[in-house]
Amino acid sequence: MLRRWITTRAPGSRAAQHNPQASGDGGLGECLRLLSFNIQVGIGTQRYRHYLTRSWQHLLPHRERAANLQRIGALLADFDVVALQEVDGGSLRSDYVNQVEHLAQLGNFPYWYQQLNRNLGRLAQHSNGLLSRLRPSLLEDHPLPGPRGRGAILLRFGEGPEALAVVMMHLALGTKVRTRQLAYIRELIQGYRHCVLMGDMNTHAGELLEDSPLRDLGLVAPQTRATYPSWQPQRCIDHILLSPQLTLERMRVLDAPISDHLPVAVDIRLPAVLRPQQLMELPRPA
């Protein structure tokens, strides 16, 4: 019965949604603040046993979810571009709230996009999400190879050979499928000099940089601190990878055990050709 809801979609350009309520009194500086966070659809998980005892929350609504989203929204408000994984696009379990749109409103983001990767109708809307204070000059939605349910979002900021490409993703658990997905992403960023890859990659930086289709790009993985599980981190599987031409100013794994993953954040210095006057933006929140 569920098979009829898992529809095939073609990759292609999309338009970011606009949040008309976004406002503020500041501007983007010379640095871009990026964050990636697997929010586990707002479920608070603090112990392994919660995967069993709170598993029903993947199907049904719970009052704690709204409070967790408030906490996540407050955390995201400090950043310019955010990649979200395991977000619900509006179904029974989320009280029919599109969590990407809701977090855009809580964090005062002008632009947002929901990538629906597994549509289970009223039961669940498995999605990735994008939040941005900059209007992308290009946004592409890409289903990834392998079993349905994984996707990547390609953003471009600026124009020409100096444009910044940002790819947000949630990769598969299996090594073979993940390798196919990384090969696909490698093709997506072909020709871009400035690249950021961010998301839940379900593997360690060593495999990504040394034993995957990304190995010839010279990418930098500034973050090596474990991000999963959030209550006792042991595995570093959430990453923001940077092309070597980008200057890293700051790296953090945030001590915010709201989900079963910890969020990872970096500040990068924008290339001179991509400074605020060249980018289309709305103000940062107060």
Rank of each mutant, 00 (worst) to 15 (best):
L139K: 03
G121M: 02
E249G: 05
V100D: 01
Y96R: 12
H239G: 01
N202M: 07
G44N: 14
R133K: 11
P213V: 04
E86H: 05
W56D: 02
E64M: 01
H204N: 11
P20Q: 09
E101C: 07
L131D: 13
N68I: 13
L28A: 08
T53Q: 00
S55V: 02
P271D: 04
I258G: 01
S212C: 02
T247S: 11
R65C: 03
W5I: 02
E64L: 09
Y192H: 13
F79N: 01
R9M: 00
L282V: 10
A172W: 00
F79Y: 15
R33Q: 07
H142I: 06
Q57A: 11
A15E: 14
Q234M: 11
G26V: 03
V166R: 00
S94C: 08
G12Y: 09
A221Y: 03
L262I: 10
M168I: 13
Q57H: 09
S91L: 08
P285A: 10
R33S: 07
L75A: 06
E30T: 11
E159A: 12
G151N: 06
R54Q: 14
D238T: 03
I240Q: 00
Y51T: 00
A256R: 07
H18S: 12
P233C: 04
R3I: 08
E162Q: 15
L138V: 06
A221P: 05
I72D: 05
L248D: 00
G218C: 11
T203E: 06
E207W: 09
P145H: 06
T224Y: 00
L279D: 12
R252W: 07
N128L: 15
L262R: 05
V87A: 09
H142Q: 03
R193A: 12
L59S: 13
H58V: 12
G158W: 01
